[in-house]
Design a protein around this nucleic acid. Structure first.
Lengths: 243, 243
DNA sequence: GGGGAGAGATGCCGC
DNA sequence: GCGGCATTTCTCCCC
């Protein structure tokens, strides 16, 4: 397949998107360094200059360049080279192309933002609005309380006026989650000059080692799952999408 | 653009890769839920059944399905719908396509694995081989020491036979890095019945709050950067790629 | 398969 | 810009 180099490069600089399938090898140098020997890949260059190289398997790009890079396709002794650089970030990528399978230049328009529910923040909101999920006597004070040592998902107190720090996880709570809770509780104790501050992890489940560590700290676990708004979304979808 | 549905679906089931550019809206339900209103996107279905939906900006796919999903393109009352599901993981995706811009079916072959240097493990190796980076009296005992509560990057002792735990970070060390170090040191003290075990973070730099927390724990910081093997890679590249 | 941790993580928000 | 942290994180490795 022949490529019109000037047309390709002018498409890149005019905000078009490019999809290229080819056999290539890839060399990268920047934050780290990598080499990928020859094989068939899909290369996408987006209108914001993001470049992605995908192998025919897996979810993540094998190599990439972030927004703000510049790309040039050039011929060097009959070999096709796609060269990318980001001088500010000192990132460099070179793709040696041995055969082009397909090439599209597209003008894509998309101003939409994804709407997502079921995040950890939604979990914190749910607990704030339904404090009984933590305990019948739990009274929430704040969400996303920002401190210099991180921010606390839900902060409140119980019937004996003991302060309670709640850390939410949408997945299985692990050692890191307990670390995080421990850091917040320790800081609150220090700030308020209190000996007793309760720490609670709210998550669907917790790993055995994390539970051990949790108990070592004298903290508690509550099984809570992130909220789903399927019905709300189905209604929204019908409205927006005409289903 | 007209699409041959049976041909498309048989391509999907025969290990081909598909690249589709279209105007579409996307609905997802699974671990979370999302809706994305209409716009131009690039959809890739890989031969391992991974599906990616990319907007014309950003590095990460706006929606996706992982390996092991099944995809079907179907026509419902003159509307084109690409439906994906993963019954085991209870993940579902529906793409409502209003216009197809381009479509490729490709047979891609790639058995290569990327070779990468400059990772945290390379840093740990470097420190193990050049212990003076930590201290003139540091004697390393092990790398990647696996324990039930996590694994220690570099483990050793100093001239007074005090055990030393080193945690490497290839980027700016943050609060989480200090948490992690603190968990390891605490566990080693517990296991060995020791009062004094030193904790050291080796990283290019450390955030002010993390440094404060580090000092609160009585730990230390060493400025160390991840190694680069540009020369080694250039040699390798010349050999493998014929540059 | 679960647990633990890194990633060239990316992206978001707050200061 | 940095800092702190979630992510439908993903990926790898070890048990």
């Amino acid at each position: 397949m022949e490529v019109d180099l000037p047309a390709f490069n002018s498409a890149l600089s005019s905000g078009k998107s490019v999809i290229l399938s080819c056999n290539c090898s890839v060399y990268y140098s920047g934050r780290a360094e990598s080499f990928l020997a020859g094989g068939d890949r899909i290369i996408i260059i987006k209108s914001d200059s993001t470049l992605l190289i995908h192998q025919p398997h897996g979810s993540t790009p094998v190599n990439y360049m972030k927004e703000g890079s510049s790309h040039t396709l050039l011929k060097d002794a009959s070999k096709l080279i796609l060269s990318s650089s980001n001088l500010q970030q000192k990132e460099y990528l070179r793709i040696n192309i041995s055969k082009i399978h397909s090439l599209q230049v597209l003008d894509l328009a998309d101003s939409q933002k994804i709407q997502l529910t079921g995040s950890e923040k939604d979990m914190a909101d749910m607990i704030y609005n339904n404090p009984a999920l933590i305990g019948s006597d739990f009274k929430p004070l704040s969400r996303e309380e920002h401190t210099r040592y991180g921010f606390i998902d839900v902060f409140g107190y119980d019937k004996s006026n003991t302060l309670v720090v709640v850390e939410c996880k949408r997945y299985t709570a692990d050692l890191k989650a307990v670390d995080q809770l421990q850091r917040y509780v320790k800081k609150i104790r220090q700030l308020k000059g209190l000996q007793k501050v309760r720490g609670i992890i709210a998550a669907p489940k917790i790993s055995p080692n994390a539970l051990q560590l949790l108990h070592d700290h004298g903290f508690e676990f509550r099984s809570v799952s992130p909220p789903k708004y399927l019905e709300k979304f189905d209604r929204q979808q019908q409205k927006l999408d005409g289903f």
